[in-house]
Write a protein that binds this DNA or RNA. Structure first.
Lengths: 209, 209
DNA sequence: TAAATTTTGGAGTGAATATTCCAAAAAATA
DNA sequence: TATTTTTTGGAATATTCACTCCAAAATTTA
């Protein structure tokens, strides 16, 4: 084949290739969620995804590149599921439904693991600036979807005009993250419940009428 | 020397030994705070503390043991400084002084590093059960000192009897942890400010008179 | 069908890293 | 002072782990 300019051909992935690649990302995401990025070896991922070393490095230049994909994948997963609740916040009942959703996940997994994005954040921010950038975007997106939810409640007349949905959204996300960390450390759902309930109770003080 | 029962003599440390040991812990704590536990090698610690490998393993059986000491050290440091503010919460001004203290630390360090205990927690809970236990105790102690502070405000007549200082303390600690994480990720003090201010504003709703 | 491209197997490599070991220097104790 | 104990230096070891390499199988494209 003729390629005088030596332009790096971006080789297309076949359907089979796509599947293998996805399998690797999913396996890596699970392992890194359970035991952290540093402790997850390439060999671990190989075994879990049932692939060989050559496949690993065929699809990803290096471990760091795989980590980036894991971040994207977890962002999609986490924010995707949350958006189902957040895009429809028309009442305090809906807000509590979101809370229940979060709490129930923790109970189901015996309060292990914490937040898939939060734990990646804490492990990677200081040592991987690409990861920091990506995770920062993820949290902005998350914050944004909470903002939209609260603004919607405001527009629906559920909240009075004293409420600042932007501030409340950021405070709510912080409470969520801190609550999850404490719940993970204590292996007890109480912290995430109290953290969210307290913030929602505060939002209650802006309820109309 | 006579020791027929083969009882492991707990060898006492001389003053010089104590100093070396402390130097190792402080060096390790700084490195692990900056780059995480996994990324901090024994050699890193050796270089920073200006000691040799034999010294390292003379004072600590293994890396894990050093990690435990780092957790204790950071617990002492963090909760110690916070207690100066928390044991004296006699007014909302005092509560805001505590907030300012926290925020100013973040600003000083350019929002890098997050919470010394929170980051250890996130990295270690799932992979080191000794660490999990120790960190859990640390957070209970921290929570407790916030509780005491708020109870004091209640007894001082600053808060009315509707306030539940125990719940508020846990929610406050969660907001603090989540706020610090988001501030660290975003390199921006806004999240920790909003998180704490929102919680304090909520506590304000229990203000007497 | 023939040629090119993609996917896969699996052994091999080199660097990083925790830990061990021997012996000497320094300090404490008798 | 003599002896025991503690502290230190630094080389050696052994293992883990990210990453490479060669070639074959499978698949796509011409």
């Amino acid at each position: 084949m003729n390629n005088p300019l030596n332009i790096p051909k971006k080789q297309k992935l076949t359907k089979k290739g796509q599947e293998t690649r996805s399998r690797i990302i999913v396996a890596a995401a699970e392992l890194m969620y359970e035991q952290g990025v540093a402790r997850t070896t390439i060999e671990d991922v190989q075994n879990k995804a049932k692939i060989s070393a050559s496949q690993m490095y065929h699809y990803f230049k290096e471990k760091k590149e795989l980590v980036q994909e894991v971040i994207s994948y977890q962002t999609l997963r986490v924010i995707g599921t949350h958006k189902r609740y957040l895009s429809n916040l028309d009442s305090f009942e809906a807000l509590y439904a979101w809370r229940d959703f979060i709490v129930n996940i923790q109970i189901k997994r015996n309060c292990e693991g914490g937040c898939p994005l939060g734990s990646l954040a804490s492990e990677l921010v200081e040592i991987n600036s690409d990861a920091q950038q990506e995770i920062m975007s993820s949290f902005f997106e998350w914050e944004d979807s909470i903002k939209k939810g609260l603004r919607y409640m405001l527009n629906q007349g559920e909240l009075n005009s004293d409420a600042d949905p932007d501030k409340l959204a950021l405070a709510l996300l912080a409470a969520l993250q801190g609550g999850l960390l404490l719940t993970q450390v204590r292996r007890d759902p109480t912290p995430i419940i109290i953290a969210l309930d307290t913030m929602i109770e505060h939002i209650h003080s802006f309820k109309k009428i």
